Simulated assay, not measured.
Amino acid sequence: MEARGGEELADVRNFQAVNANAYISESRDEISIDNMDVDEDGLFKHSTTLTNKQRGNEVTVRPATLDSLSIHQLAAQGEVSQVAAHLSKDSSLLSKQDERGFTPLMWAAAFGEKAVVDFLLEKGADPKTIARERESALTLASSGGYVDIVESLLKHGVDINTYDWNGGTPLLYAVRGNHIKCVEALLAKGADMTIESDSGYSPMALAVALGHKKIQKVLEDHILKLYKPTTTPT
């Protein structure tokens, strides 16, 4: 990951689904997934920006309806019944990747739609799919702080240490977002604390740099647990 010293701390923008009953306007042309934002010292940057066009949301003068949304958008909206209807007509949509390589499962994970995630996994969606810039469903869920989805994905054998184009792992993203429960869940399943981002930050170093003291404590406790002597010295 590239360091960008001197840049101001960017606003953390939540990755929000398109309201099916709202007008799609040019003013919302760029919507960000809070994967990584720029911090004051350029510690860690990765902002995956998805435009309405990339998401299939062409600007229109009419309100969007559920019938007009793609399966990716429906997954992000949490529309389980509509997603099921699409799959009943075309089962290949289960693994269909959009322009950025995101599958319906990845969209559901990014938006915290647990019911859709569970439904898609039950239908056989591959949780190990990697998008164009190596984003994964686990990375997106960890970045958003959706611990229930993180735990569900981990039960399906995903790579807990998967990394994206700039070296960000699920654990690093959870630390960056100050998502304590996600950090704990990832550590409990064996996430590697020694992996560093391309800019050289380990999870601990990142937590210290960002002042996430509770995350630091979780990481410290985990280290002590890992290296606690199994026998009492004589």
Rank of each mutant, 00 (worst) to 15 (best):
S27I: 07
T65Q: 12
N178A: 01
D192N: 05
L105V: 10
A185V: 01
A84E: 15
D98E: 15
I180D: 12
W107Q: 11
V218R: 00
P104N: 13
S142G: 10
Q16E: 09
S25C: 09
A137M: 03
R176C: 08
W165Q: 13
G167I: 02
I71Y: 05
L153R: 02
S91M: 14
A205L: 09
D198M: 04
G124E: 09
T231L: 04
I130S: 03
A141W: 01
D198K: 05
L186E: 07
T65C: 08
L120R: 05
A205Q: 10
G167P: 08
S25F: 03
H86F: 05
K181C: 03
I33E: 04
Q73F: 00
I149H: 01
A205I: 01
A209G: 03
D148M: 03
A75E: 10
D98V: 11
E184N: 08
A64N: 05
A191S: 00
T230K: 10
T103F: 11
A125T: 07
T139I: 14
D118M: 07
A22L: 12
I149G: 14
Q73M: 08
I180Q: 14
S25M: 06
N21C: 12
S88A: 15
Y201A: 06
R55Y: 07
L186K: 01
L153E: 00
T232E: 15
S202P: 03
T232G: 07
H86L: 14
E220H: 09
W107G: 10
I130H: 06
L219T: 05
H179V: 10
D159A: 08
A209T: 00
A84G: 08
G157V: 02
